[in-house]
Amino acid sequence: MTAPAPAPARPAFLGRTRAASHTDNAARPGALYAVPAILVFGVFALVPLVLVGWLSFTTWNGLGDPRWTGLGNWRDLITDPGLLHSLRITAVLTIAGWAVQTPLALLLGVWAAGAQRGRAVASALVFLPLLLSGAATALVWKALLDPNFGLAGSVGPWVGMPDGNLLGTAGGALTAIIAVGAWQFVPFHMLMYQAAARNVPAHLYEAATIDGAGRVRQFWSITLPQLRNTVVTSSTLMIVGSMTTFETILILTDGGPGAGTQSMPFRMYQQAFKSFEMGPASALATVLVLFGTALSLLIVRFSGFSRMRSTLEGI
C-alpha cells in the first residue's frame, strides 16, 4: 500500500526512473487531452478569479451592468470598522480551530495507527460525521444546542450553564462553531495522521525503548518529528477550512448574536446576496482570494505537490 520511499529512490533494475520516462519512444498525447479540463476550470474558476478583482472597482446591485467606480469600494473597506471585526472573528475561528483540531487529530490518529483491540471498529465509527454534509451537520447541532428541547438543556446545568443557551452569547456561539467544526473535520485529519504514523519505521521505537525512553518521550522525539510534513499539510488544510467556514455559521448562528459571529466569508455573503452591494462584497472577496492564494502556495511549497513524485506524497 503506502510506499515509504518516493519514486526517485527506486533502484535502476526496477525499470526506468521518472526522469528517463520522457525519453522513451511511446506516442505522446497532445495538449488537446487537457483542453476539456482547462476549459471547465478556466471558465468557472480562473475567469471568476480575475472578474472578482474587476468587480471590486465597480458598483453593481446584481441587476443590470456593473458600473466602474474606481477605488471607492476599497477606500470604504479599509475605513470600515466592520472589516476589522470580521477579520478578528475569522482569526479567532481559524486559530482556535487549529488549536483544538490538531492535538485531537494527532492523538487519535497515532492511536488509531496502533494495534489496539477494537481500533478498527472505533475508527469506522469515528469517521461517520464525515459522511454528513456541512449543512446537515450544522442543522443537527442546531437542534442539539437548542436550550428548550435539545441536549443543551439537559447537559448545560452540569457544565455551569443553567439555561444551556450556548448560542445566546457571542463567545458561546463562537465556541459552538469551533466545536462543530472539530466534530466534523477531526476524523479527516485523524485519517491523515493515522496513515502517516503507520509509515514511521518500527526500528526507531525499538531503539528508543532500548535506550529507556518512555512513551511520552518517544512521541515527542520520534513520532512528532517523523510526522512533520503531515502536520504542515494538515494544518494548512485546517486553516483554509476554518477560514472559509460558511454553512456552519449561516445555519447555526446566522452571524449572530448581533454581529458576534460575522466572519469574512459570511459578511461577504450578506453584503452580496442580502444587501446586493456586489462591489464592496467583491473587495472583501478579493481579500479572501489573496489569503487563499497565499495558503495554496504554502501547500504547494511544503507538501511537494509540484514535484509530485508519488501519489499525494506529504499528505
Binding site: 468557472f44 472578482v52 483554509v240 472559509t244 478579493t286
Partner: peptide, 26 residues
C-alpha cells in the same frame, strides 16, 4: 500542459466563496 498543471495547483485552495459573486454574474 505543464503550465496548465501549475495553474491547477494554484486552484487547490481558492475558496469557492471568494469567487461566488463573479460566478453568479457569469
Amino acid at each position: 500542459v505543464a503550465g496548465a498543471f501549475s495553474v491547477f495547483l494554484l486552484g487547490l485552495a481558492i475558496p469557492a466563496q471568494a469567487v461566488i459573486i463573479p460566478v453568479y454574474l457569469m
